[in-house]
Amino acid sequence: MASLPVSAWPTDLDTLAQPPRPRLVAVEASAPAIAAPARLSALEWSIVALAERDTIASLREPGRIVAALENLFGVHRPNKLANSRLEVLRRVAVFVWRQGWKVPKSELEAFLAEGFTLDQYELIQASIAERAAPTRRRGRGR
């Protein structure tokens, strides 16, 4: 095996390859981005409140026979909302009012596809859970 004598190493530090010096780059100091709290508009909150009266059956499309029977007996079905974003909100709110956290994945995906966020979904869940909780009577146990 061949080796170089120790004297073959350069003794002058200037002849050694110098690594490039790090370059300082000014970074603008800014406050960390704080996520805005989840909010719904007054119109959106009114849709959530109106969904309290609707049932899960209001979300299904009736068949021809059922539609004919409803017309014959005068059964009124809640109309879909003309705005698709608000209709998706209504559908999610109906599921939350009736089933709590058991919202179908497809409905949640549609909710997110319309531009809503998971924070808004959790806000709706928390608000409905607070309103649906049994109220405590004051003055009980006197």
Score class of each variant (00 low, 15 high):
Tyr121Met: 01
Asp119Gln: 13
Arg60Thr: 06
His76Cys: 10
Arg138Lys: 09
Arg53Trp: 07
Arg64Met: 07
Ser106Met: 08
Arg131Gln: 13
Ala2Tyr: 10
Pro19Thr: 01
Arg60Cys: 05
Ser84Phe: 03
Asp119Thr: 02
Phe73Pro: 05
Thr55Ala: 12
Arg90Phe: 01
Gln18Ile: 12
Ser7Tyr: 11
Ser84Arg: 10
Glu44Ile: 04
Asp14His: 11
Ala67Ser: 11
Ser3Lys: 11
Leu16Arg: 09
Glu61Lys: 08
Pro78Val: 01
Asp14Thr: 12
Trp101Met: 08
Ala133Tyr: 09
Ala51Ser: 01
Ser41Asp: 09
Phe116Tyr: 13
Pro104Glu: 09
Arg98Tyr: 05
Gly74Pro: 04
Asn83Trp: 03
Ile124His: 07
Ala38Arg: 04
Arg77Lys: 05
Pro32His: 09
Ala49Arg: 14
Ser46Cys: 03
Leu72Ala: 13
Ala49Leu: 07
Ala126Asp: 13
Leu16Gln: 05
Leu50Gln: 15
Pro5Arg: 12
Val6His: 10
Val88Gly: 03
Arg140Val: 14
Ala51Ile: 00
Ala31Asn: 08
Arg39Val: 14
Leu16Asn: 04
Ala2Pro: 08
Thr135Ile: 14
Val88Met: 06
Ala126Cys: 10
Val75Arg: 12
Asp54Val: 01
Pro104Gln: 06
Ala31Arg: 15
Pro104Thr: 08
Phe111Lys: 05
Ser58Ile: 03
Ala26Glu: 15
Ala67Met: 02
Gly115Gln: 03
Leu16Ser: 04
Trp97Arg: 01
Thr11Arg: 14
Ala8Asp: 13
Ile56Ala: 07
Ser46Phe: 01
Ala31Glu: 15
Gln120Phe: 02
Arg131Leu: 14
Ile56Gln: 04
Lys102Trp: 07
Gln99His: 11
Leu40Trp: 03
Gly63Ile: 00
Gly141Ser: 10
Ile47Asp: 00
Gly74His: 04
Arg85Glu: 11
Gly63Pro: 00
Glu61Ala: 11
Ala133Gly: 13
Pro32Trp: 05
Ala17Leu: 14
Ser106Glu: 13
Ser41Lys: 07
Arg131Ala: 13
Glu70Cys: 05
Val94Leu: 00
Ala35Arg: 12
Pro5Ser: 12
Arg131Cys: 10
Pro134Cys: 09
Ser30Glu: 15
Val88His: 03
Thr15Val: 14
Leu86Phe: 04
Phe73Ile: 09
Pro32Ile: 08
Ala31Lys: 12
Ser41Leu: 10
Phe116Pro: 00
Leu123Asp: 05
Arg60Gly: 02
Pro19Lys: 02
Arg98Ala: 08
Arg91Gly: 01
Trp45Phe: 03
Pro22Asp: 04
Ser41Trp: 11
Ala82Thr: 08
Phe116Met: 02
Val75His: 12
Ala8Phe: 13
Val75Asp: 09
Ala67Gln: 06
Ala129Asp: 15
Arg142Ala: 12
